[in-house]
Design a protein around this nucleic acid. Structure first.
Length: 417
RNA sequence: GGGAGAGUGUCCCGAGCGGCAAAGGGGGCGGACUGUAAAUCCGCUGGCUAUGCCUUCGUAGGUUCGAGUCCUACCUCUCCCA
């Protein structure tokens, strides 16, 4: 399937991770000969990573699995500047406190995919704030800035797009690519890292780093980018009604995470199995051969495996069990997401509208009214027809809870306390 | 510095003779059909203690019974001239 001779590139290629590689033969030969050190940079713009970041994390994972040394670079310094690539508008500038807060949340994820330590192919976690924050402006201009041609920078897509559309590009953002290039060279100096990976939108930035490495140190560096992943119906990955699909359990429960993958479109199942699980390819081929209704089995495997990677096997099994009871057996699953309500509220009659808002189904009681009108809200699996309906102790199931549902997929248990 | 134009429902794009909670899309949510899929069809898509009340069209004033719409100033962006 792929012409690569090294385990590393062969694995990435056959699982669909590769969009572009600079000098593929040379990199392949190096990876065949010995351990290669490579890195990917991660933004600290949010408190958690979301599924969009899963792809680069998996690349680091495979890198380690095939005997190489991955570096997860936290953009503690570059996030202070903001990457203009692919953005129409300037990013909001984050405060340093926010960045550090975000960093904490993000770090936790990596240990689930990578083994960190001091061993030969143990992963390293770095933070570019360590070297960027200490830079001296004039020194930096003389040492690094002299290697950059503004004429050429203006030709880069990320810059050109802004200029063509007459959109503002601040000098701050204009410098982002220089800093990212410098990161690459700095990591090369510190760790012997020769490869930078990233999404396809990072190609230009990575190439800049390669050029800088050659000019400053006569080093041969490499770039590898992954394709932009969209669903087969064209939507960007990782968005749901509730917003982004977060990897941290406190922002998105394992159950909801499992559901996200369970609802994958048919056409995406094989691709996602390759990218987001570590199942062997022949097993994936078997699952991908399933047609029609049987493909649901493949979707469950996808949900199980990808949830197990992020939240652990136990959480994945529990989510699968909850889903099976709720959707297939039509029975009661006490493990559904639970919202606690004061018992006094229930005694006095708890309005369904308020309950729907409390459950997080809708943003306002007005919206709850509309959903009831459209037949979308259910109490204990019975469609609510009267928006004035109140929930009382009579609505409690034998298990002592009230099941509230919006649509066929969203279920919450209300539990009096 | 001079001249011309634009900013609309807090997701986006976009109509809007002085009576407007404001056309139409996209997206999203719900319903039907299915397989917890896609496609398709239908409904909904400012808030509330709701036959009424409150807040929305760049910002602040003004004219008017009544302003998204007219006038004035300001802010931001775009185009043309210097």
């Amino acid at each position: 399937m792929s012409a690569y001779k090294s385990d590393f590139l062969h694995t990435l290629a056959s699982r669909g991770f590769i969009h572009q590689v600079s000098e593929p033969e040379a990199l392949d030969a190096l990876a065949k000969k010995g351990a290669v050190t490579g890195y990917i940079g991660f933004d600290c713009t949010a408190a958690s990573l979301h599924v969009g970041s899963l792809l680069p994390i998996m690349m680091l994972h495979w890198m380690q699995q095939t005997g190489h040394k991955p570096i997860a670079l936290m953009g503690g310094g570059t996030t202070r500047v903001g990457d203009p690539s692919g953005k129409d508008e300037s990013r909001r500038i984050l405060t340093d406190e926010m960045i550090n807060e975000n960093l904490k949340g993000i770090r936790a994820i990596f240990s689930k995919f990578l083994k960190f330590g001091d061993g030969k192919s143990d992963a390293i976690m770095a933070n570019n704030a360590d070297w960027l924050n200490a830079l001296n402006y004039i020194d930096f201009l003389r040492d690094v800035g002299k290697h950059f041609s503004v004429n050429r920078m203006l030709a880069f897509d990320s810059v050109k797009m802004r200029l063509d559309r007459q959109q503002e590009l601040s000098f701050l953002e204009f410098n982002y690519m220089i800093l990212q290039a410098y990161d690459f060279v700095e990591l090369h100096k510190r760790t012997g890292c020769i490869l930078q990976m990233g999404g396809s939108d990072q190609w230009g930035n990575i190439i800049n780093g390669i050029d800088l490495g050659r000019r400053m140190m006569n080093a041969q560096l490499f770039a590898l980018t992954s394709p932009l992943i969209t669903t087969s119906s064209g939507a960007k990955m990782g968005k749901t009604a509730a917003g982004a699909v977060w990897l941290n359990a406190d922002l998105m429960s394992p159950y909801n995470y499992w559901q996200y993958w369970r609802n994958t479109e048919d056409g995406d199942v094989e691709r996602f199995l390759k990218l987001f699980t570590v199942l062997p390819l022949d097993e994936i081929a078997r699952l991908a051969a399933l047609k029609g209704q049987d493909i649901n089995e493949a979707k469950k495997v996808l949900a199980n495996e990808s949830t197990a990677l992020v939240h652990g096997r136990a959480a994945a099994d529990e989510a699968a069990g909850t889903a099976r009871k709720t959707f297939e057996d039509g029975t009661f699953a006490e493990s559904l997401p639970t919202i606690e309500i004061p018992r006094a509220q229930l005694d006095g009659g708890y309005g369904v509208l308020t309950a729907a808002v409390a459950a997080g189904f809708v943003a306002s009681t007005g919206e709850a009214r509309r959903q009831i009108k459209g037949g979308g809200l259910k109490v204990n699996d019975e469609t609510v027809s009267d928006e004035k309906m109140t929930l009382t102790a009579k609505n409690l199931t034998p298990e002592g809870v009230i099941k509230l549902s919006l649509g066929r997929k969203r279920h919450v248990l209300l539990k009096p306390v």
